[in-house]
């Protein structure tokens, strides 16, 4: 039995609402943990307010942040799945419905001709990124709004392979976080992409940025690099909202693919403390599993 347009629409609506009106449980846990270990009094006060705001948003079903972000869907489409709908169109309709009903502020303009009325969908919005899953009979949808501040301070760079690639990567990530300072609303999740080509490295950083906080890279060397980078970035003293403290990042997630001999592509995608995202699977038989 194929997945119907109605089912896809309802799940997309629910995901967009959840992603803009709550902070994911892994992120709340990481913030709670930071509140216990943070040594700076003002930083603890800021973290406590963040947790309070997240709780209030969930309880009252209202937006966590005034910046509801650029809506982005990450799809994994099982090769055995059957969908009776124009997927991208249905996702846009779901975003439009939620945005108009609440309402959310229209925020999207032409990059050059900026004077016209801002849009809520259209002109390429929402962004939809697709991948396939062999033999799976479901579609997995991760919805994540990309907020203005952290996204603005995210970076991509292509360099010649240096004599010390690891040192170059660490330096690039550290510099990116230092440049962002409080403007990206720390404590952040830092998604790092390494390798691929220009498009792939950006996608790797994006995918790294939506990975669960406590899930390390399966490669033990990269997993220990993630831990090492986390400690390094927390040593900057930037702290929650850039006001000082030990809690600058909640996690560093690294994704790696091979690249040409002549390159070292690097990308860093920053996520603010709200780390908003929601994920679900829809199966051919109509079952919906929220992850």
């Amino acid at each position: 039995m194929p997945i119907t347009r109605e089912l896809l629409f309802d799940v997309a609506v629910e995901l967009f609402e959840r992603a803009t009106r709550s902070v994911p449980s892994d992120t709340l846990e990481a913030l709670e943990k930071a509140l216990k270990t943070e040594t700076n009094e003002l930083a603890r006060y800021v973290l406590a307010m963040m947790l309070k705001n997240a709780r209030m948003a969930s309880e009252s079903n209202t937006v966590v942040c005034q910046d509801t972000g650029l809506p982005t869907f990450f799809l994994k489409i099982g090769t055995d799945v059957e969908i009776e709908a124009d997927v991208k169109k249905v996702l846009a309709e779901a975003v439009e419905k939620v945005s108009l009903e609440f309402p959310y502020r229209a925020a999207f303009v032409h990059p050059i001709f900026r004077d016209s009325a801002p849009l809520i969908v259209g002109g390429g919005i929402p962004i939809v990124i697709c991948d396939t899953l062999p033999r799976a009979d479901f579609i997995e949808i991760a919805m994540s709004p990309q907020p203005s501040g952290p996204e603005f301070w995210s970076r991509i760079e292509m360099i010649s392979p240096p004599s010390d690639p690891l040192g170059a990567v660490k330096g690039f990530v550290l510099e990116t976080v230092n440049r962002a300072g409080g403007a990206a609303c720390p404590p952040m999740v830092v998604g790092v992409g390494l390798g691929g080509d220009m498009g792939e490295v950006a996608k790797l950083a994006k995918l790294a940025s939506i990975r669960p906080i406590n899930e390390r890279n399966p490669d033990p060397e990269l997993a220990s690099l993630e831990e090492e980078m986390r400690a390094l970035l927390n040593g900057t003293g930037i702290g929650p909202m850039g006001l000082g403290g030990d809690t600058t990042v909640l996690a560093v997630n690294i994704e790696v693919e091979y690249c040409m001999k002549a390159w070292l592509p690097m990308a860093v995608c920053l996520r603010c403390w709200t780390n908003r995202r929601a994920r679900a699977r829809i199966y051919n038989d109509g079952r919906v599993e929220h992850l």
Binding site: N53, V63, M241
Partner: peptide, 13 residues
């Protein structure tokens, strides 16, 4: 006066 980013509910109240 610095407001805490991402705290729309608290400030709207």
């Amino acid at each position: 006066l610095q407001a805490i980013g991402g705290c729309a509910v608290i400030y709207t109240k």
